[in-house]
Simulated assay, not measured.
Amino acid sequence: MKIDATKVELVNSLIRNRRSVYQQHYTGERVDDEIVTQMLENARWAPTHKLTEPWQFVVFTGEGLRKLGEAQATVYKKVTEADGTFKEERYQNLLTKTTLSSHIIAVGMKRDDKKSVPEVEEIGAVFCAVENMYLTAAAYGIGCYLSTGGITYFEAAKELFGLGDDDKLLGFLHIGIPKAAIPDSKRKPIEDKSVWVRG
């Protein structure tokens, strides 16, 4: 088997240098839409059982970020006032923090009722698609991170992103230009997390 050492090194480097870069570390500059489009294009090549392609993405940028913040804050207030868990600080964060990102992608999993694929496999496919976006961002030197906070797990939020009762909102991928070099990260040795069975 012939191995292309250049491709191997490139893939290894991208994977090992991928980082979550949070909003407070963005410059405020706008990421080119073409880069975000390439992230989405690469997302669609993620593995997907029976080719259901369960991912659904809604991209917010420009004035759309403010609208997203208002929509999230409205849903949060309605749900939490009803159950007595409303917090003003969280409401204000949802209302305003969206504008710190260049783009935000709402990440959804849309069920395909015609194919009998277990839900967990569909969720796994979407997260593989998100990893493809992470790696693409790393290749371009762009920062991003997947947030599962805010209204992610509120049933009432699904409608905002074209999701039905059987679908899932899985989070929000924030995108921005990092202020500084992306820092190193540590991981436990793979020997701590793997077992080989031979023979």
Rank of each mutant, 00 (worst) to 15 (best):
K2M: 05
K2V: 00
D4C: 05
E9F: 06
R19C: 10
R19H: 04
V21W: 05
V21N: 03
Y22P: 12
Y22W: 05
Q23N: 15
Q24P: 01
T27E: 03
T27Q: 12
Q38L: 08
N42T: 12
A46Y: 04
T48P: 10
H49S: 15
L51C: 04
T52F: 05
E53G: 00
P54H: 10
Q56C: 13
V58Q: 07
F60W: 01
G64A: 13
L68E: 13
L68Q: 14
Y76K: 00
E81M: 09
F86M: 02
R90L: 09
Q92P: 08
L95D: 07
T96Q: 15
S102V: 09
R111S: 06
D112Q: 14
S116N: 14
S116R: 15
V117M: 10
E119C: 00
N132Q: 08
L135F: 02
A137W: 06
A138R: 02
G141W: 05
G143A: 05
S147E: 15
T152E: 01
F154L: 15
E155W: 02
A156C: 02
A157Q: 03
E159M: 06
F161G: 03
G162N: 11
L163K: 08
D167M: 06
L170M: 10
G176V: 10
K179N: 01
K179Q: 12
R187Q: 11
P189H: 07
K193W: 00
V195S: 10
